[in-house]
C-alpha cells in the first residue's frame, strides 16, 4: 500500500472523526453543564470503550477471514453510499438549500431539555442516570459512523490499527480543544470538513469497488488522487451552481438549524 493511499486514509478518518466528535462534544458539554460532569464524562467514556470494542470485534475478523477482493467490493460499496450521502448533504448545505448544523443552538436546546427533565437540583458529583444515558447515546450514535469508516478503510487496506489511531487522535484533539475553550466547538467549519471527507470517502469507495472487481486503475494507488480531484472539482462546480440558481421554488433555507441526528 503506497504512501498516497495511506495519507488519504489518515485524512479521511481524521476528518470524519473530527466532525462527529465535535457534534458529540456539544452533547457531552450540554450534559455536563446541566446535569453534572461526572455522569457526562462517564457516559462518554463508556461509549468510547464500546466503540473501540466494536472496531476490534468487527474489524479484526474481517481482515483475517474474508477474501480481500470480496471485502473490497463490499466495503467499497459501503463507502460509496456513505460518501455520496455525506457529499449530497454537504453540497446542499454549502449551496444554501439546507440549513447548516448549528452547534450553539443544539447546545442551548439540549441543555434546556435536560434542565427541564431534572427533578430538583442535580449534584455535579453524584451519578445521574439521565445525564449518563444522554452523554452515552450522543457519543455512541455520533461514533457509529466513525467506527464504520475506520473498519471500512482500515480493513480494505489492512491498516486497521492506523485508521483506529487516526480516529482516536481526532477524538483526543477535539476533547482537548473543547476542554481548553470550555465549550462546544461552534467555530469548527463542519460543513467544509464534511465536503472534504465526503469527497475522500466517495473516491475511496469507487477505487475499492473497481480494485475488488478486478479493474486495474492506471497508476495503481495514485489513481485515488485523480479520482479525488475529479470529485472535488465536480463538488465545487455543483456548489457554485446551486448558490447561483438557489432552490427551484421559494426562498433559500435558513442559514442554520437545530438538528440532533448522527450525521
Amino acid at each position: 500500500m503506497s504512501a498516497t493511499s495511506t495519507t488519504v486514509l489518515l485524512l479521511a478518518v481524521f476528518g470524519a472523526s473530527t466532525v462527529e466528535m465535535v457534534e458529540a462534544l456539544t452533547i457531552v458539554v450540554a450534559v455536563g453543564v446541566s446535569r453534572g460532569w461526572r455522569s457526562a464524562l462517564e457516559g462518554a467514556a463508556a461509549a468510547v470503550v464500546l466503540l473501540a470494542v466494536l472496531v476490534a470485534a468487527v474489524g479484526v475478523p474481517l481482515i483475517h477471514y474474508v477474501p480481500i477482493d470480496a471485502l473490497r467490493v463490499v466495503i467499497g460499496g459501503l463507502l460509496l453510499v456513505l460518501g455520496m450521502s455525506w457529499l449530497r448533504k454537504a453540497v446542499l448545505r454549502a449551496g444554501g438549500l439546507k440549513p447548516l448544523h448549528d452547534e450553539d443552538a443544539i447546545f442551548a436546546a439540549t441543555s434546556e431539555e435536560l434542565r427541564q427533565g431534572a427533578i430538583g437540583a442535580v449534584s455535579t458529583r453524584r451519578r445521574d442516570g439521565m445525564g449518563f444515558a444522554v452523554a452515552f447515546k450522543g457519543v455512541f450514535l455520533e461514533g457509529t459512523e466513525v467506527v464504520l469508516i475506520v473498519v471500512s478503510l482500515g480493513a480494505s487496506q489492512h491498516r486497521l490499527g492506523l485508521a483506529a489511531g487516526a480516529a482516536a487522535a481526532a477524538a483526543v484533539l477535539v476533547a482537548l480543544v473543547g476542554a481548553l475553550v470550555a465549550r462546544q466547538l461552534s467555530a469548527v467549519p463542519e460543513n467544509t470538513i464534511k465536503l472534504g471527507v465526503g469527497v475522500m470517502l466517495t473516491s475511496f469507495g469507487l477505487f475499492w469497488v473497481g480494485e475488488g472487481a478486478g479493474v486495474h486503475w492506471p497508476g495503481s494507488d495514485l489513481a485515488i488522487v485523480v479520482i479525488i480531484g475529479i470529485f472535488a472539482l465536480f463538488t465545487l462546480g455543483l456548489v457554485t451552481w446551486l448558490r447561483r440558481v438557489g432552490p427551484r421554488s421559494g426562498p433559500s433555507a435558513p442559514r442554520v438549524a437545530v438538528e440532533r441526528t448522527a450525521e
Binding site: 455520496m84 457529499l87 449530497r88 453540497v91 449551496g95 438549500l97 466517495t202 455543483l238 432552490p247 427551484r248
Partner: peptide
C-alpha cells in the same frame, strides 16, 4: 450524485 442533489433541490 448530481441526480440526487438535483432531486434534493427540487424537493425544497
Amino acid at each position: 450524485l448530481m441526480a440526487s442533489v438535483l432531486h434534493g433541490r427540487n424537493k425544497r
